[in-house]
Design a protein around this nucleic acid. Structure first.
Lengths: 137, 137
DNA sequence: GTGCCATCTGTAGCCGCTACAGGAGCAAGC
DNA sequence: GCTTGCTCCTGTAGCGGCTACAGATGGCAC
């Protein structure tokens, strides 16, 4: 028997115990069989699924996207749909990066105004209070 | 009187009506005076504060950071502290960008595996299920 | 006076967990 | 057989930062 309890599953999959239960509760992963005393027992199939979810989360997929990916994996591999989900997510990552880079540029420029501590009023606070719009905001 | 109601304040500041009330509720902005009928009236000072919060949010500051910035602005301008908060936030933006760029690289490489639709099994799902660790995960 | 928007309070929902409380199971040591 | 100390159980509430209602007034135009 290569079955493990929820703690072992957490160690093997890298998903926290509470998170595993959470995923089960919201129906993201299927409830595993239980021992006679009612404790969850995870076999290779369930562990593989948990790893899948952890990897997809690490790539920033939402739980809904992961749900869709799991369904596509279980059904007959609609490869084009998988690609579509992944590509859309990739585009969104790009948008997030662009947003953050705009923030960084604006904020860096603002911080640069405050070179030392010899200023009369704090230029950072001034910049945040000014009437002109902030770039990217 | 250049005072406005909460709707006008929302238009002028760019902060939604519900969000203004939310900010007041959590004590981020001071409750403005009320009209005789109990409606909020915003003057230039309050509007300036709302704009400040909106700008800072647009730059990704958390509400707690903004609270600190507002306190520093109200008190005697501890410019070094302001700079400190801004610099730390800048560092965190950098970390987020780096995380997202790692995600993007990994995901792009994975999507690239699925060039067309002639593959036997979906390489994206395969990559997510494999045992080797995902880069950056 | 009547229509209609703005405003009021209060509460519940979103995402993706995380952190409890208060109990039961289980393996090892004495 | 009994204690010790971990694991596991269920259920609920909290986080940040809003957003979306419901149901009741306010205020102004026609």
């Amino acid at each position: 028997m290569r079955e493990v309890g929820i703690g072992g599953a957490a160690r093997v999959s890298g998903v926290h115990v509470e998170t595993i239960r959470y995923y089960e509760r919201i129906g993201l992963v299927v409830a595993p069989p239980r021992s006679s005393a009612g404790q969850r027992r995870y076999g290779p199939v369930e562990l593989r699924r948990l790893r899948f979810v952890r990897r997809a989360r690490a790539l920033g997929f939402s739980l809904d996207e992961i749900r869709a990916l799991l369904a596509l994996g279980a059904g007959g591999h609609a490869c084009a749909e998988v690609r579509d989900i992944a590509q859309r997510h990739l585009d969104e990552i790009g948008r997030k990066i662009a947003d953050l880079e705009r923030m960084r540029a604006t904020l860096a420029a603002t911080v640069a105004l405050c070179a030392g501590d010899a200023a009369p009023d704090c230029p950072i606070l001034e910049a945040l209070s000014d009437t002109e719009p902030v770039a990217g905001g």
